[in-house]
Write a protein that binds this DNA or RNA. Sequence first.
DNA 1: AATAGACAGTTACATTTGTAACCATACTCT
DNA 2: AGAGTATGGTTACAAATGTAACTGTCTATT
Lengths: 148, 148
Amino acid sequence: MDAIDFDLEQFLPFRLNRAAEFIALRFAGAYKAKYGLTRPEWRTLAALGSSGRMTATEVGAHSTMHKTKVSRAVFALEERRWLKRTQHEDDRRVEHLELTAAGAKAYRELTRLARDYSAELETLLGKDGLKALSSGLAAVEGVMAKPR
Amino acid sequence: MDAIDFDLEQFLPFRLNRAAEFIALRFAGAYKAKYGLTRPEWRTLAALGSSGRMTATEVGAHSTMHKTKVSRAVFALEERRWLKRTQHEDDRRVEHLELTAAGAKAYRELTRLARDYSAELETLLGKDGLKALSSGLAAVEGVMAKPR
DNA sequence: AATAGACAGTTACATTTGTAACCATACTCT
DNA sequence: AGAGTATGGTTACAAATGTAACTGTCTATT
């Protein structure tokens, strides 16, 4: 079969996916094995930790997760007492989400791990590799931001 | 909360994942909606289409998928008559996988779409963005290849 | 040749995910 | 005010996935 004109190995979506899985999986060990968090949970924690009080919808927008993922993550974090909800006074559909003291503590610990991992990535990929990757991603992000 | 020292938005694993989802999803429409293929199925098809006859294990290595994913994808493609298996003469554990004529045809059609999408990406990301992304990914791939 | 270990691929089960339908509340327009 | 529609969030169900155990075959060692 004509191997000439298409090679999965060079196809950008494939490469991007594979790289993302690889990079993410390494870090997932930190929150998964150590804290038993799922990815949506970690993302929710990180969103609330860095931006403070937000609604579920905002968390979803911030970390590009579907409502249902956010909803489930919020439940899980709430059960752990890492997060608390409060009703919006004016609109009872909305609920504000906020980390508890315990949640904030976990967040700080995890961000420390995240920073360590970032540093590790820099040495692994090299300054140039990192820079290239980052600016490539910025290009993608530019496209994502567009109205479509 | 201290938003200063960590921002999910800048965390590479997060950015990479988000970009990969975005890029992959756009193309997934092509094989998902149009042919009803799952991603593992498309990858298997692509591996066999570009490299010809392979074993399931080889497909997995080539496209970094777990055995079970490959196994299920092979089943699905076989049911569609896009793929046939033949036993290895010397080792009856092994089976060779190969596309049928129908499978090869589908592969060709899909590679056409893949090429179109690649071209679209080039215009979307710009020559420079694409180049940066590609070399950034190459850096990651270099790390992946290492013995670990 | 007999036992033990490795390997290819499959299957079973639990977990995660995506889709769509669903509540409840709020807004808009007449 | 009342009908229709939009929105925040949850739930139910189906499909996809990961983990681990399993079957069958091969290889090595004795």
